[in-house]
Amino acid sequence: MTEIERYYAPASLEQAVDCLQEAGGVTVLAGGTDLMPQKNAGRLKPQRTLMNIRGIAELRGVELSGGEIRIGALTTITDLLENPLVRQHLPQLIEACNHFASDQIRNVATLGGNICNASPAGDTLVPLLVLDARVDLVSRPEGRMLRRGLPVAEFFVGPGKTRKAPTELLAGVTIPLPPENYLGRFFKFGTRPALDIATISIGFGGILEGGVLSRVRVAFGAVAATPVRASHTEAALEGRPLTEATIAAAAAAARDEVTPIDDVRASAWYRKELIHNMTKRILDHVAHA
């Protein structure tokens, strides 16, 4: 077991990235709702420095500017649920937060933590994929602030693995403002209404005009090593009238393109069945909306 030698609670983003740059061997602590259980289970070895970033005020909050919604990494799930901008424009994200853990966890769990933990079943990740979100990564090589953006779709590499460098901190996500007539849906299959890890999850976004779908985004959680965009399913829907035949074809494409595994929660076969049946159910609802 590595001993934590230093506890550091920076007050600004600059101090935080400085620490990442210089110290090496830093564990970033946000809400701790992933970190603590992982440490207690012996799955995570804390590094020499424990850096608590929750004192960095600039990383928390939601703002709209230049046609984009920016959400700070330290924004909690409860913050999201209570935020008028999110409620108005990002229905999938609200739906995901509504099925996220329990009140106690939502009060401390952060969006940034959910993203950096990169679980294939992370509840906010599927909506972020559907919403074309970009992650904002910050580092400070040689004393200058370096920001880079990356589409979330490219951010996840595997379970718990991302393209974030050890010297980078996630500052937040940027989401293009969806248009007025935008339809967003999120579905999480758990065996109970709260406190459950998704067996599968489905995100949908698009515009339905004159019965025809456009700008379609579909993403799935818990059916691959990372949350994934479903390009075949999207192709089966894009530019087509949302008829029964289209829905059936899209649901079949969805079942065929996911690659889930067997684990204690569900078998791969059942996950595929759920993806098929629930994709169909969501599209039925959209067609009748």
């Binding site: 109970r192 406190l195 459950d196 890890i197």
Partner: peptide, 11 residues
């Protein structure tokens, strides 16, 4: 208790 599922209040 994550994977051994006791009934929760809403159920």
């Amino acid at each position: 208790f994550r994977d051994y599922k006791l009934v929760t209040a809403p159920e």
